[in-house]
Design a protein around this nucleic acid. Structure first.
Length: 643
RNA sequence: GGACCGGUAGCUCAGCUGGAUAGAGCAGCUGCCUUCUAAGCAGCAGGCCAUUGGUUCGAAUCCAAUCCGGUUCACCA
């Protein structure tokens, strides 16, 4: 049990004995004592005055006296300031904690809880390479999976690849038209980038072809349209000429966008892409062959990137194999009366009682939509793994979708419903706004990695250390540091907040960063080497004749808090909790390391003032090195032995 | 318009299950490398915690309203 929990339960005992009150242990507020006061942890006693019927100070004193008398092995002393009961924890308690935990390489780990969880993340489209937004998704998913594992869950990491659809056909068509048979091998271009280049070509051509159509619409020439589209576009054209709309930029922009979308659909190239999609669905052998060939190139490219990022999966689902699922759920739903049909044979669910709208699940022609697929996939995943929890790492623009998905599953009484959890995260934006592929402002993942690795190489060279490293070792180190900087940058912020990335300023290597923590790790390792301590070395028991010095104590305390931090990170579903903690610990270690009085290190380890102190400090930094390493591993970040 | 998310130092963010004088990093300014790695340490400066009201012994934190920014409400995925 953690120290904080131990104090809580001791306080609960005190309150029960003193005031005959049963209060829930978690209702007892415990803070770390402010540095200006004596003590390590503080109980807030204001709330107890209700039943103590004493002033806060008296209440604090009464409880403090009781605790010191009843739990002397834990509480060495106390003082009361206003309604705050500051507790001094017995040095022996810290030392005992340290001695039984300092060499635990899996600090903070919870035993298996028998629960299974699936984390779906990454889920890329196979028509273009990964970009910065995907990186946040990948790092988050990987990290959450690791955090869940450390909290005792059995984890399945899943990737649902979006490998079919109109966007894939766009790349395929453009390749057919312009590539003259080019392949990754013939061009030397990474497969996902090659395919992405043709996607861009398609979009360029599409834009070219759409322009004259848009121009005609704006001049009230609707010859490109017929049927329902004609009606719609005529209406939009008329709206646009109304002065009140013309004056409202937001509204007129919206109308322009819709006209643009309608026009894009009428282009020749778009028509061809749609035909190709139909051919794909019909199983046309030529189209299918092209499809699997080009997807193969993309996968080769993705594999390289995933490998470099250290991202992996236990299970890969392909949308081409799941996109027809869900129809049987719809049949079930109709039978149960949860769903209903409209005149045109389309199938809907009415969510108006839940404050939402009606939602379409099958079109009039019987084809399914995104939601239908996701319902089917949810059932498939559950049939495959019967997990207790199913996490979807997906950007917050899909909040509504997942709310509806869970609700529909509940209404259909699917067993998968309960576990559905949308781990929603904010978009990564540029200083000028969202990344837009059509405007070429997308930050490519591979470019980004290369840049980070180059920067780390530059920093390393400037430091002038590591002259004895081989070229391979150096290259390996640059990767570890560059990726560490990038991963930490994207994980240190609360997932649900959107974040701004400024490519001009790039990512820092100083301060609250991955390299800072990696550096602290390397520093400790260096001391351990100097002291001749290895993983298997036996450290003598510290005979605690002297009291603990301030930073010795605070480092032990911080290390001891890791278990609670790990639980918090899981409860909050937020790796940033770990990132903040790891930084604080590294920072504390650096203060410990560097403190000097009159030119002498206060906490010298190799040249400590006594053998006992040397052993104590070696234990402290050994614990710290394990905690830092574990924290970073939970973020998917490696820590170097030297840097 | 409805729903959801955010607004804390010049910038990027912690703190938000109510607790002491609101914390970090970056940027700016001072110092510190003969001694376990200066990707570091110590310090200075920087705040009407969006606004207004409420609840409370106590509010950045909870409630209400307002303002600003974002996302979403497709027979797209």
């Amino acid at each position: 049990m953690s120290v904080v929990q131990t104090i809580r339960s001791a306080a609960a005992t005190a309150i029960k004995e003193l005031y005959k009150q049963d209060i829930p242990v978690d209702d007892i507020a415990i803070n770390v004592t402010k540095p200006e006061f004596e003590g390590e942890y503080t109980i807030v006693v204001f709330t107890f005055t209700k039943f103590s019927r004493q002033k806060p100070e008296e209440t604090g004193n009464t409880i403090g006296t009781y605790l010191a008398a009843r739990f002397p092995e834990l509480i060495a002393g106390f003082n009361v300031v206003k309604g705050f009961l500051n507790l001094s924890i017995n040095n022996d308690y810290w030392v005992q904690y340290l001695q039984s935990n300092f060499n635990n390489r899996n600090v903070g780990h919870k035993p298996a809880n028998g629960k299974k969880v699936m984390v779906e993340y990454s889920s890329p489209n196979t028509n273009k390479p990964l970009h910065l937004g995907h990186l946040r998704n990948n790092f988050l998913g990987y990290s959450i999976a690791e955090i869940l594992k450390a909290n005792g869950y059995e984890v399945v990491k899943a990737n649902l690849v979006n490998d079919r659809g109109i966007h894939i056909c766009k790349s395929m068509l453009a390749w057919q038209l312009f590539a003259h048979g080019d392949t990754p091998e013939s061009t030397g271009i990474k497969g996902d980038h090659l395919v992405g280049d043709y996607y861009v070509k398609f979009e360029t051509l599409l834009k070219e072809q759409a322009e004259p159509i848009i121009a005609r619409v704006l001049e009230n020439d609707f010859r490109d349209f017929s049927g329902a589209d004609l009606e719609r576009v005529e209406k939009l054209g008329a709206l646009l000429h109304k002065p009140e709309i013309h004056a409202d930029k937001e509204k007129s922009d919206k109308i322009h966008d819709e006209i643009k979308e309608l026009a894009r659909n009428k282009t020749e190239i778009m028509q061809q892409a749609k035909i190709m999609l139909q051919q794909w669905e019909a199983g046309n052998p030529e189209v299918r062959t092209l499809w699997s060939t080009m997807n193969g190139w993309v996968y080769q490219g993705f594999d390289v990137t995933y490998k470099r990022l250290g991202i992996d999966f236990d299970k890969i689902y392909y949308e081409s194999e799941t996109y027809l699922l869900g129809k049987d759920l719809v049949e079930d739903g109709l039978r149960k009366g949860v769903l209903f049909k409209k005149e045109d044979n389309s199938v809907w669910i009415d969510l108006t009682n839940d404050g939402l709208d009606q939602k379409l699940l099958l079109r009039g022609d019987g084809t399914s939509v995104y939601m239908t697929q996701d319902l089917g996939t949810a059932r498939l995943k559950y049939d495959d793994y019967q997990m207790d929890l199913s996490i979807y790492v997906v950007a917050d623009e899909q909040n509504y979708h997942f709310k509806v998905l869970k609700l529909i599953l509940e209404k259909l009484q699917e067993p998968a419903a309960e576990g559905v959890f949308h781990l929603s995260y904010g978009m990564v934006e540029l200083p000028h706004g969202r990344m837009k592929s059509r405007e070429g402002t997308v930050v490519d993942a591979d470019d980004m990695i290369t840049e980070m690795v180059n920067t780390s190489a530059q920093h390393t060279k400037e430091s002038g250390k590591l002259k004895d490293f081989s070229e391979d070792e150096l290259q390996r180190l640059y990767e570890v540091i560059g990726l560490g900087a990038m991963k930490f940058f994207l994980l240190r912020v609360d997932p649900k907040k959107r974040m701004i990335f400024n490519p001009e300023e790039s990512i820092d290597f100083h301060g609250f960063t991955g390299p800072f923590i990696q550096y602290s790790h390397a520093r400790i390792k260096s001391i351990l080497r100097e002291a001749g301590v290895t993983d298997t070395s036996h450290l003598d028991t510290y005979r605690h004749n002297d009291s603990l010095l301030p930073l010795e104590k605070s480092l032990i305390m911080l290390n001891e808090q890791f278990g609670e931090v790990l639980e918090d990170a899981q409860k909050e579903m937020s790796p940033s909790v770990i990132a903040n903690y790891a930084f604080k610990l590294a920072q504390e270690f650096n203060s410990f390391y560097a403190e000097k009085v009159d030119g002498k290190y206060t906490y010298s380890i190799v040249n400590a003032e006594s053998e006992e102190k040397k052993n104590l400090r070696l234990q402290i930094i050994t614990h710290t090195v394990h905690t830092i390493r574990r924290s970073m591993e939970l973020l998917g970040i490696e820590v170097p032995e030297r840097m």
